[in-house]
Design a protein around this nucleic acid. Sequence first.
DNA 1: GGCAGATCGTTTGCACACAAACAAATGTGC
DNA 2: GCACATTTGTTTGTGTGCAAACGATCTGCC
Lengths: 146, 146
Amino acid sequence: MVTAAKLGQTAPLYRLDAQIGFILRRASQRHLAIFADRIPELTPQQLAVLARLCELGALSQNQLGRETAMDGATVKGVVDRLLARALVVAEPDLRDRRRLVVRLSGEGRALFDELAQVGMAVSAETLAPLDEDERQILLRLLEKIA
Amino acid sequence: MVTAAKLGQTAPLYRLDAQIGFILRRASQRHLAIFADRIPELTPQQLAVLARLCELGALSQNQLGRETAMDGATVKGVVDRLLARALVVAEPDLRDRRRLVVRLSGEGRALFDELAQVGMAVSAETLAPLDEDERQILLRLLEKIA
DNA sequence: GGCAGATCGTTTGCACACAAACAAATGTGC
DNA sequence: GCACATTTGTTTGTGTGCAAACGATCTGCC
């Protein structure tokens, strides 16, 4: 049997700085910091919920989770905090009594209208180190591995 | 004053699917799922700590946090869980009594040696939808915005 | 020698994130 | 009609992730 050790070779070493997961986490951290600085009143997940409700109208809690890439347990916490601040309203679905239908409140819509522009500025600042071509490429490649 | 409204234009709308933060989060989620499936015995943060301790030898808890991109409160939790499983050892620094020096235990080193290859396979699977050129480009662009 | 500012570790509080287990409601096949 | 699988929402437990506040310690500078 021929092994790397016998040939005096080394197994390719694990370089943390070259792992996609580590780089992904650091890029996310920088983005989160920019977001928290510009939009201290909402988390990215909370803004995502408001955005989807604005786009799609009323949704059940589970549908909302699928649309915002959160599992059921997570979306419940996010919705609960938005409910506590009256940014969304929830009521049972009469046709399917398992469902809890969530929709935007007036305050929620007003806040989203105000923050949508800032949200796009956050994205722009996150991508600021790249030129326009690079931004398109990065978004396309990330989408492919998502 | 000329406004978009007066010209009948609409402000560019906020499309959640086009925001870098949302795409980053979904890419991270897919990577995390692959990692958890292949390496159920450790979290990515725990493997990162083992990797850095293997590369750099003993480090203080705070140094370790900087090397693994975690703040002080977070790295403490990660180190505590590794200590509970005896994968690392901690002892006070005699020269600087504020510091807690953390190093790999025998079991920690053995586990890391075993998992380093799997960790690289996780990175490869995460990047599987891309060809070799695209992988290089993605890592380079992500590094630029990190 | 002494003091101001920095660093280190710790704790608390809040917000995701997901697995697992559960009850209620719905739908399906027979 | 009825057993059975699925969907939905909920709870619990574990693990990040960061801000803020704190005491202990160290460092530099006067």
